[in-house]
Design a protein around this nucleic acid. Structure first.
Lengths: 221, 221
DNA sequence: CAGCTAATGTACGAACTAGTACGTTAGCTA
DNA sequence: TAGCTAACGTACTAGTTCGTACATTAGCTG
């Protein structure tokens, strides 16, 4: 009852819709990535936030929509990164190698994103399908690849008859596998694919792999 | 109350421990692959079996142990397949290509296995770690790869300085990605990587990729 | 500064879910 | 064929977990 002067600070609770939403998204990303969709707990997400569970439902509607929002944000990040791509001033071989390296780096730097993608695949990509933002949003990288491939083929450097989407899949495969299957691969083969000491080794290997394919001497058929 | 004669047939319930266990494992594999570890329901598994939930606990102990048993069985299947490998009578190039094709086929034929591996990775491979059967069990395929690589290098056909484990990872990456990320890749890029019409295309692409890498002309360094 | 609304907090409930206590029976064995 | 045990079934519980009804307040607007 000591009604001593209690100035403005109170308990520091300030209203900020944008920041609250952003914080929920950030924590939700971690929690979903940690435990999977069904393993994630809405209460746990709320607890790790300055706000309460009520706000999750207030802003996102429910667990499903929250996960969709998390995915939208994650894909947004990768999109932004891809828009920064600046490799077209290089010759085709160097450009593809650089692109592969950047893809490699991005996967390594965003293991949570990889996990989210794995989780979404377990659920048949139903959240992507339900999202307006994510429907058939191509990838900026695809356009870049397309142009490099064209240049490479015209100059005769690239002998392979590949499609941009296939090349993208090819590059992503290795980057994705290395991060996504790190745990089982390590447990079964005793090799940590994400060991920092091996990082350069694998980064170079990916580049060599893709370039070897694109520039291989083909048997005339 | 009509105590009419009810002969032997009753409801056809016959006791068969081995069969009951096998049936539980089979159904559990489907359910875990369908919904993930936390998404899978023990009651649902029991319901799809001729037996009851009680039996799951009687034979396996609990949900965790059941999932571990499912993994053990799944890895057992792939091990068996790998032991049938018969490619060493081929020349190194053909042998590696054949190996890649068999890996490709196996992944395509066992999407449930791929899903289980994805799920296990989400959970940090903790069930593999908890399993006695699965601890550091290498892969029969690795020995085969090792021998082919040695032969290829000695004959001068293979110029790449790769490790068997790395080559295995390289081949698996593409096979795994194609099946595991089918849903998101299809949703985002509008291309079904497992489309039967494209099967031969991707199967050949993988072979070309690996062979190009192994036989590429290396810049002397 | 009155009043209104977006933003926030608390407490609770309904439904689900892993796991278990207890009871029954098939079918082998002495 | 008596009896024993592995195999099986039923019914229930304790603890979660998503979601919501209801109450409150910050802080902008006229």
């Amino acid at each position: 009852m000591t009604s001593i002067d209690e100035p403005a600070p109170r308990n520091g609770r300030i209203r900020d819709a944008a920041r609250t939403q952003a914080e929920i998204l950030e924590v939700a990303t971690q929690e979903f990535a940690r435990a999977g969709y069904d393993g994630a707990r809405v209460d746990e997400i709320a607890a790790r936030t300055r706000t309460t569970k009520r706000m999750i439902y207030y802003y996102f509607g429910g667990k499903e929509q929250l996960f969709t929002a998390v995915l939208e944000r994650a894909y947004g990040v990768i999109r932004e990164a891809e828009q920064q791509l600046d490799v077209e001033h290089l010759d085709p071989v160097a450009a593809i190698r650089r692109l592969a390296e950047l893809t490699f780096d991005h996967h390594e730097r965003h293991p949570d994103f990889i996990r989210l993608v794995s989780i979404e695949n377990i659920h048949g990509a139903e959240h992507i399908a339900a999202s307006e933002k994510l429907g058939r949003i191509g990838s900026p990288a695809l356009e870049v690849i397309r142009r490099i491939l064209t240049a490479g083929k015209e100059s005769g450097l690239f002998t392979a008859d590949v499609d941009a989407v296939d090349l993208h899949a090819m590059i992503s495969s290795f980057c994705f596998f290395r991060v996504a299957n790190r745990a089982t691969f390590g447990a079964l083969f005793g090799r940590d694919l994400v060991d920092p000491a091996q990082r350069e080794h694998y980064r170079a290997m990916l580049g060599d792999l893709v370039i070897a394919y694109l520039t291989a001497e083909r048997a005339a058929d």
